[in-house]
Design a protein around this nucleic acid. Structure first.
Length: 552
DNA sequence: CCCAGCACGC
DNA sequence: GACGTACGTGCTGGGT
């Protein structure tokens, strides 16, 4: 195919027209789509891969995706739809899907659309996708993003498609039992809450709750909500109020259970595929500002783990028959990346010596010998390490640790005295971002931060934090994406039946036939730890179990 | 249908 | 004197 001839092959139209039959699609198009030598480009081509796979048609030879290109060029913009892209690149206004099918009650399926309208819509779609890919390819090259695209983002597409199609087995009956347990306790709490409040109201309405707590019961309002609506009733506020009244504690418990029931127990149960007993999330490759993946419908990256009741949800995620779950998570990947990027002597040595990094920070910041680092000191040091990654201020740290602002500033001063490389990294990164308006990851992923020179201090400070956090979080994302690509390849080469089923930012979950357990862990350790050697070693921790809570 | 408030994860 | 931790998804309530 050359020039601007785009072809629409009608298939499955209800209209009585000459069209191709499904077996012919498989016979004629199947080999072309499967041939890795015949290069394909697309817009959100992971979607096409999954649709084609449903009909037994593998899609190989994918070399470019305009949606991902648009994202790499501008990771913070809201959407990367073809209509937006066409308008941006060519000033071309595409026909909207619902202009072809109608909308609302009168909407028809695409099969019912008259063939000539379908032709225009589909051919326009192919045409603009092809044009966009051509133009984006040039723009990526100009911006130094071609390698990131070719080496990471494009090879990741089929890996994610496979993970989505494989899915994660979930015990539906166990989820239903959990939902009932939560509901029973919520009903009990509901009565106790009404009794304590002296009236019935909608407990889920923070607005009504605010009136009860702060007007009727006369508790002291600690914090306002950000917009107009009034009293904050969030977990910090309720925890404070729990000292002076029995109601807030009941409300906190009610909130916890309500969250678990509605967001997890009930919603996940609805999304279990009846035929397979598995949940199939969508991995979004073009959403986050930093290069991380996101997960939706359902989001499997925020399944509870911290509290015991929440872990019960995680326990319903189980392996396929005759399999075990293996979790492989990078230990302290962001701090290791910080050590590498900052070229910080102490941080690098600590990781090379396999020290406990938070204990080491406690030693440096609080100036005590390692044997004198209490749990409390270690936990404070951990908060400081997190704060560094997020660009936290002395004020925020003081709040976090419940100490004075002055003391917090002292800790921060000590930190930067000892970790001089980190200090230098933060200063030079912000300075460079001021000059170029951009901040970069290890693999050249970039984020534009024009607000770094804003006159509004809030905007400017936000950009400064992003200038620091994005290289760290984004480089971690680069590394785990590359590890996922290599793992998929490794599993294939070794003829393994183990499946990679999920990634949660610094962690990869595998569904593994029991006899492959040892082999899988050895391969994953090698691939993940050696994915891209840094000045510090990368370390992976493994967990195995008959549910996701155990494996973690 | 959208926003606000809230809460779950890393 | 105010404001002050990165990145997400999704629930319910409440107003349009």
């Amino acid at each position: 195919m050359s020039g601007r001839h785009r072809v629409y092959i009608p298939l499955g139209h209800t209209e009585d027209i000459l069209q191709i039959e499904k077996p012919d699609v498989l016979r004629i198009l199947g080999p072309v789509l499967a041939d890795p030598e015949q290069r394909k480009v697309g817009q959100n081509i992971k979607y096409d891969m999954i649709v084609l796979a449903r009909y037994g048609m593998p899609l190989n030879g994918v070399v470019f995706d305009s949606m991902i290109a648009s994202y790499l060029l501008n990771p913070t913009r809201r959407g990367h739809g073809l209509d937006q892209i066409a308008l941006d690149l060519f000033g071309y206004k595409m026909v909207a899907y619902d202009e072809v099918t109608g909308k609302g009650k009168d909407q028809i399926g695409f099969q019912e659309v008259p063939a000539k309208d379908a032709l225009f819509y589909a051919a326009e779609d192919a045409d603009l996708t092809f044009m966009a890919c051509g133009r984006f390819s040039e723009l990526l090259a100009e911006q130094g993003l071609s390698d990131l695209m070719a080496e990471i983002e494009v090879p990741l597409i089929p890996v994610l498609a496979d993970m989505e199609m494989t899915g994660f087995r979930v015990d539906k009956a166990a989820l239903a039992r959990l939902s009932e347990t939560f509901e029973t306790e919520m009903n009990q709490l509901e009565q106790e809450i009404y009794d304590l409040a002296g009236e019935t109201f909608n407990i889920n309405s923070s607005q009504q709750l605010g009136v009860v707590l702060f007007e009727k019961l006369g508790l002291k309002s600690v914090k306002k909500t950000r917009k107009k609506t009034g009293y904050s009733t969030d977990v910090q506020v309720l925890t404070k109020l729990a000292d002076v009244h029995p109601l807030p504690e009941k409300l906190l418990r009610y909130r916890t259970l309500g969250k678990l029931k509605s967001t997890y127990a009930d919603a996940l149960g609805e999304l279990i595929h009846a035929a397979t007993g598995r949940i199939h999330t969508s991995f979004n490759q073009t959403i986050t500002a930093t290069g991380r993946l996101s997960s939706s419908n359902p989001n499997l990256q925020n399944i509870p783990i911290r509290k015991p009741e929440g872990r019960k949800i995680r326990e319903t995620f189980i392996p396929a028959g005759e399999c075990t779950l293996i979790s492989a998570d990078y230990s302290q990947i962001e701090l290791r990346i910080l050590a590498h990027c900052a070229d910080d002597e102490i941080l690098i040595q600590a990781f090379r010596d396999e020290e406990d990094i938070h204990t080491r920070t406690a030693v440096e910041v609080f100036q005590v010998l390692p044997g004198f680092v209490t749990d409390e000191l270690r936990s404070q040091a951990k908060a400081i390490n997190f704060g560094i990654i997020y660009g936290m201020s002395a004020f925020r740290l003081a709040n976090e640790l419940n100490i004075s602002r002055k003391m917090a500033q002292t800790y921060i001063d000590h930190y930067f005295n000892r970790y001089a490389g980190v200090k230098r990294f933060i200063d030079t990164t912000i300075a460079q971002t001021r000059d170029t308006g951009e901040t970069f990851t290890l693999f050249g992923r970039k984020r534009r931060l024009p607000d770094i020179n804003a006159s509004n201090a809030n905007q400017r400070h936000f950009a400064e934090r992003a200038a620091i956090n994005t290289p760290i979080q984004g480089s971690a994302a680069d590394l785990i994406k590359l590890a996922m690509i290599r793992m998929a390849q490794t599993l294939k080469e070794n003829g393994m039946r183990s499946k990679m089923i999920l990634s949660v930012h610094d962690e990869i979950i595998f569904d593994v036939p029991v006899e492959e357990t040892t082999g899988l862990m050895a391969l994953a350790r090698e691939v993940m730890e050696q994915v891209h050697p840094l000045k510090v070693p990368l370390k992976v921790n493994f967990g195995t179990g008959e549910n996701w809570a155990q494996a973690h």
